[in-house]
């Protein structure tokens, strides 16, 4: 009886995994199709990869995407860490909760609302749509994520640790750099990483605030996909899948080394 139900459960799990991974491998599989469609596999080829590597326009877009992701994650991490430390320093619960609610607004609000409202904001403020508007938007939606990743670490830190540092002669700056930051480093690291992935993954917000001359990978894929199937997107997704997997492996290696649970990566 027990065995039967568990094998049924395994079957179900297997089915879920199949559904989750099939589309991805479907894409990868056809990236080697010389036939040019996603339905009939004619022969093996690297043509689409070759084409991809010679597409300078696309390479520039990839570069843009990466630069935006790294820069926005960096700025968001600094701001978010300072913000989290600030939030913790408020001892009154009501002040803290208010700040946290404000912090979480962007996390729960739909991409479309964020995109539309930022579009209005940049237009009103006279910021030209393009690199800077996209960068600012990405910083904006990454900050609350960093705060949420860092704050639990900060809260978990016993305040006696900072008292101890002060007691041993450390100035405020010393306490920050020698005790607080090293202690919350895993949280900072996770926050930066999350910000990076949110930025790389974002489509909707970027779609709203990007101008004509500037594009990120997500936006580019969207406009390509609207035109129909073209197998260099498959080749691109294969590369992105490989990079993602490497990313995840590295992240888990580092996370397990620094002793934090890495399971709750998203949301």
């Amino acid at each position: 009886m027990e065995k039967k139900s568990s094998s049924l459960a395994n079957l179900f799990l297997l089915f879920i995994f199949f559904i989750l991974y099939a589309p991805i491998f479907y894409l990868i599989f056809y990236s080697f199709n010389s036939g040019g469609t996603m339905s009939h596999f004619e022969g093996f080829t690297f043509d689409w990869y070759r084409e991809l590597l010679h597409d300078t326009r696309l390479l520039i877009i990839v570069l843009n995407t990466v630069v935006i992701a790294l820069l926005s994650a960096l700025i968001a991490t600094i701001t978010g860490v300072l913000g989290a430390i600030g939030i913790r320093s408020y001892k009154r619960r009501q002040t803290r909760n208010t700040l946290l609610s404000l912090n979480n607004i962007l996390i729960v609000s739909p991409d479309v609302i964020m995109g539309a409202s930022f579009l209005i904001l940049f237009t009103m403020a006279g910021v030209r749509l393009g690199f800077y508007s996209v960068l600012l938007s990405h910083v904006a939606f990454s900050i609350p994520i960093v705060v949420l990743m860092v704050l639990p670490k900060l809260m978990e830190m016993s305040s006696s640790l900072e008292d101890a540092a002060r007691d041993l002669g450390a100035s405020h700056w010393n306490v920050l750099t020698k005790v607080t930051l090293p202690y919350i480093a895993p949280g900072i690291f996770a926050g930066f990483f999350m910000a990076l992935t949110y930025s790389l993954d974002d489509f909707a917000v970027t779609f709203f605030v990007t101008g004509n001359g500037f594009s990120t990978l997500s936006v580019e894929i969207y406009s390509l996909a609207r035109r129909g199937v073209s197998l260099n997107i498959n080749a691109l997704s294969t590369l992105m899948f490989v990079i993602t997997v490497i990313f995840v492996v590295v992240y888990y290696y580092l996370a397990s080394r620094s002793g934090t649970k890495g399971a709750n990566l998203r949301r």
Partner: peptide, 16 residues
């Protein structure tokens, strides 16, 4: 606190 010649042993030890 950092200017006092006084040191504390904390209840939870507060070791870094």
């Amino acid at each position: 606190a950092n200017k006092r010649p006084i040191n504390t042993v904390f209840q939870d030890y507060a070791l870094f």
